[in-house]
Amino acid sequence: MRGGAAALLLIAATMASGDERLSGTAFMSPETRAMQADDLANPGMFAVLEGARLWEETAGVSGRSCAGCHGDAAETMKGVAARYPAFDEASNAAVDLTARVNLCRTRHQDADPLPPEDPRLLALTTFIGHQSRGQKIEPDPDPRLQPWRELGARLFRTRMGQLNFSCANCHDDNAGRHLAGNPIPQGHATGYPIYRLEWQSMGSLQRRFRNCLVGVRAEPFAYGSREFIALELFLADRAAGMTIETPAVRP
């Protein structure tokens, strides 16, 4: 009950500010919220610590570390996650933070790209995302991203899979209600990568997408696909101005 009251207060406070959008955290149990709020209880902080270590570690034949070029992440990476996915000139495409880390590895460190959901890759993206915690999401306004924006908006509303559901069917039409025992959040990806208790590990937003797609019995898009980057960009627009919480904890 107390948790319900706290959630109502949170909802009331947000409504009072004129913004009816809520982070997924608002839909979580008091226990899960407490775990996320306390850095000494949040298992996602292990990924932040590991990411900080990897930031300083050299990779590939170049012998360069992330810090070798980017210096102190607390300064140089502050606000970076807030404006991703962004446009990459060289590949003439939208890239998310995960793809950016791997592009840095292949272009500048002369290292192999890390496979999707590799703990090292998640540690780095969590560490970089964490540098923007508390900052507002400010999507990249680059007009060249328009095709991705349109694709993302369209995919969000496209029914898929044997159950024939679109993202919007749950996260717009039924947000705040429950699917089986689980609350349906509004689809504001403010805390990725997340520590998910069910996974007992960190996971990217794309892993979450794949979860949802498998849930509606659809063939999930591949990691790093144009479709997923487009959806990430659409969600960044949807959550523009909301506060980054990386690493969030989910059940």
């Binding site: 850095d39 000494l40 292990f46 590991e50």
Partner: peptide, 8 residues
């Protein structure tokens, strides 16, 4: 890998 976070 960090092994534990402790508050004393």
């Amino acid at each position: 890998m960090a092994t534990a976070m402790v508050n004393i």
